[in-house]
Design a protein around this nucleic acid. Structure first.
Lengths: 377, 377
DNA sequence: GGTTAGCACTCAACTTTTTGAAGTGCTATG
DNA sequence: CATAGCACTTCAAAAAGTTGAGTGCTAACC
């Protein structure tokens, strides 16, 4: 059996299955893709590919479906250099509009980017930030909201903001102004500390507090520490998870959708499947999960030094589309937001670039390589 | 036909349907509830109730299903005084634990409360805040994140925090310190302004900015205004929407779940069906929606002067359970968080109340009345 | 060796038929 | 006004039959 043809057949099967979500048969393959051989030959090739673990059958007389290994092989042999130029023009145009949109805050642009990614890929998109506990406290404030309520505001070095509102009751000398003093004191000592080390460091201040405020100081400190414990580990945003419901792999079976939904409720579970920041700027990472929580493909890429962006869906996804779209979006965001080349302009760089370039001929396409990364089996 | 019996039959039908989600027949009714009459009598009553618009049939020889009007009647005639005491003991115990939990910030307690409500009612729970645009700006800050990025932080009088990160590029004199001065200036003039009026008011400052900063000031101001425009209207949290998927009304039909999901993506659409704050502290409101977006019941109650909490699900929901749970939770939250009776204690009131009371015998049950409010038909 | 035509077999998916349970309305009677 | 009885309706689920896409294998062919 010619190796070349076998590869080709595998590729076609993967693509056909990606498109139709139906097991692929030898005849269909023959008709749709012009292979100059007969269906019997294709069947032979398929039998071999199955033996090699690239394909699977749903039942003895069904067509073939790619296995995880099959997808992996497909991904490893994708023509990456062509991907970047395959980004849909319409998408590029729309994305350009986002970059030129009125509000150019990182939050707004990122959120709209993700919505667009979700929409065009019909998958869920996740932006995953670093664990808040690994970040540094850069600001600790107290704000009076009403007569009886006050709000702590914690801000970390990557701009994560967490607020905690408390009810104050002017007893035991816990007045707003006392609180204010306490927080100023805490702020002075704790800004610059890693969140995870905050508790220990704050605890050490307890004697000072009790000395200064009496018993009330104790309570303040405890409340502060308690608030910290629930300091969100959730540094993520999920977009378009409802898209998954329209996919055949989830719509047929309620359970699987729910488990996908759950997994996306707390994507930190998926974190180990994300691209690492070590190789920032280089690769798109494709990982497959395979646990009780479900069976996903996670296509991810570091977005900047802290965050990653990922497209999450079933293994059967249009990788060409997904990889190229993600690559494109990250490239553009990086270019216009996260790096600031000398050539670019003032406060909001994009505002000056009235016509964001559209990549059609590849002049300076970024390095692109799909990295392997096996999910735990 | 005895009126009393008819009422009773309607009530049983509603409750049976709530429980089983199946059309209710005369025989079932007779067997399950001890009505001292025959099935034929029940049938006659049902025929009358149908004529009055309380019941509907799914097809000519099916059992009966309550109509919206039927539910309304049922709700109007619920024995409200008994509800408050019907809250599940286990739930009360668990809720007490939440109130006594380590972190007593309003955010944490509220979020856990809603999770509990969702879980016990198997519905979605929504906390809806006021429109951000109707609130006052109480703080406007600038924070340097990295060499190249800075973050605006807006805070409104109800403690809503919004952040916008921008990339700074030291050109045209737009340095961080210039920005800082600008924001200080803006802050001085704009704090206390209603968000919706901010834009106009800021615009008036443009000449001053241009004069002070030259062209750069212009850009800053514009960026600021643009960020405002996307200042989230979304002041809400949704919990447990995945529960809806397990309900027969949604699980059978993907479309209906999606429309429910969509409706919950932006609950401000549902806002008109929420309890009004005029009658704060008084009533639980039950409203039915009936539009293209779907068919829900919304059981809501003002939580404090700003926010409302609502349980959202299909019209077929266990109203006794839902009403009592919501009533209970809001009552407890109000008691320990939003009002601060003289009796209560220091910084975080609940921390002192080591054993939050459990209502078993009704001593001081709050005023309770179900308000009518027709959804638009 | 690789390729192909042909054939028997498998199995899921769809359609049709059958059956039974749950329900109603109506009528005559207590 | 309530009830027993009966004829009729409808849906849902099971059973039975039909179809079609797919396979593996064998024998022949280049």
């Amino acid at each position: 059996m010619k190796l070349e043809r076998k590869d080709e057949i595998l590729k076609y099967i993967v693509e056909e299955f990606i498109e139709t979500a139906q097991p692929v048969g030898s005849k269909t393959l023959l008709e749709k893709y012009k292979l100059n051989c007969s269906s019997a030959t294709i069947r032979n090739a398929m039998a071999e590919l199955e033996k090699e673990g690239m394909l699977e059958k749903t039942h003895v007389s069904s067509g073939r479906v790619p296995s995880a290994q099959g997808y992996q092989y497909y991904l490893d042999h994708l023509d990456n250099s062509a991907l970047m130029n395959s980004v849909d023009m319409e998408f590029q145009r729309e994305f350009q509009e986002v970059l030129n949109s009125r509000s150019k805050s990182v939050e707004d642009v990122l959120s709209r980017s993700c919505q667009m990614l979700s929409e065009m890929t019909n998958m869920a998109t996740v932006v995953l930030g670093p664990k808040a506990t690994e970040e540094l406290l850069v600001s600790l404030q107290l704000l009076r909201l009403t007569e009886k309520t006050a709000m702590f505001i914690f801000i970390t070095d990557s701009g994560y903001v967490e607020k905690k509102t408390f009810v104050i009751n002017n007893k035991d000398g816990v007045t707003f102004s006392a609180l204010s003093t306490a927080i100023a004191m805490l702020s002075e000592r704790l800004v610059g500390t890693k969140i995870s080390e905050l508790e220990g460091k704050a605890k050490a201040l307890e004697p000072i507090f009790i000395q200064t405020f009496g018993r009330g100081g104790d309570v303040v400190l405890q409340a502060f520490l308690d608030a910290l414990i629930s300091f969100a580990k959730k540094r993520f945003q999920v977009y378009g998870q409802k898209n998954l419901l329209s996919l055949p792999e989830f719509s047929s079976d309620k359970e699987s959708f729910l488990s996908a939904f759950d997994a996306l409720q707390d994507p930190h579970n998926l974190e180990k499947n994300f691209a690492q920041h070590d190789d920032i700027g280089s690769n798109v990472n494709v990982a497959f999960t395979n646990d009780k929580k479900g069976d996903f493909a996670i296509v991810s890429k570091p977005l900047n030094s802290k965050d990653s962006i990922a497209i999450v869906g079933p293994k059967r996804m249009d990788y060409k589309r997904v990889l190229s779209a993600l690559e494109y979006v990250v490239y553009m965001l990086d270019k216009y937001y996260f790096s600031t080349p000398a050539s670019s302009s003032s406060l909001i760089p994009v505002s000056e670039v009235s016509n964001v370039e559209i990549m059609k001929e590849n002049k300076k396409k970024p390095a692109k390589k799909v990295a392997k990364k096996g999910g735990k089996k």
